[in-house]
């Protein structure tokens, strides 16, 4: 078995799909903080719309550069999070890529819909930098 750090380095190729610039800003801050304090080597891609995410996923499939994880927002105009999830399901990449839904809507219906579409888990968007840091460390399996 490989050492955990090597495994972590291999796993942490992450695509963040979110049209909300505030949340992206917050996530970048949290990741920066995380990289300061822990040995995390992240290959981060920020995708600002659902339709761009579809293109990225198709390109990843073609070039064999699919991310290990996708952090996916649901509420986006045009192609939304559920559409992206559906695309992942159709392309049969859900066993290779963990899709984690991070959304404001925490109601049971949304959660059920996301899980039914193949999301690994559904998280509620955090209320502070601290919470964001904790959420990302948990999702990236750091520490």
């Amino acid at each position: 078995m490989l050492p955990k750090s090597r495994e972590a380095m291999y796993q942490n190729r992450v695509m963040v799909v979110d049209d909300d610039e505030d949340d992206i800003y917050l996530m970048k801050k949290a990741l920066a903080r995380l990289q300061e304090s822990a040995r995390v080597n992240l290959d981060l891609t920020f995708v600002l719309s659902g339709s761009d995410a579809l293109g990225e996923i198709d390109r990843g499939l073609q070039d064999n550069t699919l991310p290990d994880k996708i952090f996916l927002d649901l509420n986006m105009p045009g192609v939304n999070g559920l559409d992206v999830l559906h695309h992942c399901m159709v392309q049969e990449i859900l066993d290779k890529v963990d899709v984690v839904v991070i959304t404001t809507a925490s109601d049971p219906d949304t959660r059920r819909a996301a899980l039914a579409s193949g999301a690994r888990s559904v998280c509620v968007k955090p209320n502070s930098l601290q919470e964001m840091s904790e959420l990302i460390s948990r999702l990236l399996d750091v520490n």
Binding site: D107, N127, S128, M132
Partner: peptide
């Protein structure tokens, strides 16, 4: 009520986030 609470949650959450960021 559902919609109002859901849509209102969004800016309120961000206010909380930015207050936190401002402090830092």
């Amino acid at each position: 009520a559902h919609i109002a609470s859901h849509d209102l949650q969004e800016p309120l959450r961000k206010i909380s986030v930015y207050a936190d960021l401002l402090e830092e």
